[in-house]
Amino acid sequence: MFSYNKVQELVDAAETKGQKLWEVILEDQVHVLGRTRAEIWNEMEQRLEVMREALARGLNGDNLSVSGLSGRDAGKVKRALAAGRLLGGPVLDGAIMKALAVAEVNAAMGRIVAAPTAGSCGILPAVLFTAADVLGSSREEQVAALITASGIGMVIARIAGVSGAAGGCQAECGSASAMAAAAAVEMAGGSPAQAAHACAIALKNILGLVCDPVAGLVEVPCIKRNAAGAANALVAIDLALAGVKSVIPVDEVISAMYQVGQALPASLKETALGGLAATPTGCRLARELRKGGEE
């Protein structure tokens, strides 16, 4: 369990104690889990390592999914970026590429860290490693950023949920994007309040996103939504670092996400009955995959 029900409570605790968000979160989890600070730190460091390995695998090989429906796109971005054919530059395009890479490893049955879910596993590592490159962050700072991301994620999970089946893609890729944004802002030297604004802005921009996977698989459109989630996090990060504030307070945004998730029909919550899954092409692909499986 987590002792905080609101992001604002986390921010208040950090400001009162003169600490970073990650210090408040780690202290709480030491207490709640009854494990030492070093044990929890090591667990998070191992997760960072799994993320790094997944990214390396995603960038070094062309990963094709088990169904054959997706894959090999991270390599395209990598080559185009190297050739100078893209507009976004190494930060935006690098983040997009990394998010695709990790999400493709997931679809190809590689090892990943669900962050917070497997379907959204590319966003946090993409943003974290991109920001760390820009900032020259140490390994310790990256582990600390994972802890900040976790604290934000735990509040969202408690108040709104992080499953596509319950809340749509906003709950998966939206949460991942918000977690990543807050973590990177803190890693960049932003205040706890700025990290909270980044979280709010990232969630607001992705509010209402439906979960409509073609053939019910974590591939189309999930992999590209990881790229979009990473780009969205960069938008939120830079707005927050520039001092832009979310007009709607972060915890109200999280509650709004829950309400929107409740209002979404079941057809748009991971059932593959609506949205892109229900397009003529989506239906055809689902039929072909099912038939192919029976042969």
């Binding site: 997760r47 999914s65 997931n106 090892r111 990943i112 860290v113 669900a114 962050a115 497997a118 991301a149």
Partner: peptide
């Protein structure tokens, strides 16, 4: 929340 460490995709 950051886990499980797992083989994908779901």
């Amino acid at each position: 929340i950051l886990g499980p460490v797992m083989i994908g995709p779901s």
